[in-house]
Design a protein around this nucleic acid. Sequence first.
DNA 1: CCATTAATATATA
DNA 2: TATATATTAATGG
Length: 228
Amino acid sequence: MKNSLKEHLIPDSFHPIERLKNYVHMGTVRNYQKRDTVVLPGEAINKVIYVLSGKLSVNFLNDDGKQKLMYKAGRYSIVDRLFPLENCFVHVVSDEKSKICFFSKEQLFTIFKQDDEIIYEFIVNYSSKCFHFMNEAKEMALYNPSIRVLRLLYELCLTEGKAVDGVYEINVRLSQRAISEITGVHFVTICRVFGWLRKENILHKTTDKIVIFDLQKLKDLINDDIRC
DNA sequence: CCATTAATATATA
DNA sequence: TATATATTAATGG
């Protein structure tokens, strides 16, 4: 619905499945505090995780200690941990106080039999995740770090930007650190990019919005660099 | 907490 | 080898 395009740019709560909340009694509900681990790296739980409230972070770890944020899952989002995968060091942590429901394969199949619309919802959910990660792989392969940031801002403006007094406003609460985690660009580089964009009067980011003064210039920057 | 800056090291074209 | 980006550390909001 309203997140149809944004959710492939910002990996937060892919296609929430609201109607699954009607079947919470069939699963197992647990509460977590901020920074609690929901799934340990490498742990096989063979469940689908359904977020009733709060927010989870899904991180992918390497043995050298490096990690990358995959996505965040807010209310009515699901984190699939149904199948045990070899060397799958995924760490699921609660970002805030959260209430989570776990469904086993058997429980899900029972739900699917009662409500086949939910099957469709699951397919859309997996599809939107797949689309996001395909897009991210493409961006990583084709563009330099700072260009990826510019492209994200440009796409955000096209999908979320609202024209106000000759400028575009994107109402989104994104810290530089969050943009760094999403794009895989170092936070110091993010800071330098925003500093430069502000100096050139192209755009300005505040805590809860991004104001784009010169969309054409932003577009030109992206295209200029492609030729090099 | 988050953002900024500088100094330095690495990586890449 | 020149330029871009990452790393680290120090500092301020």
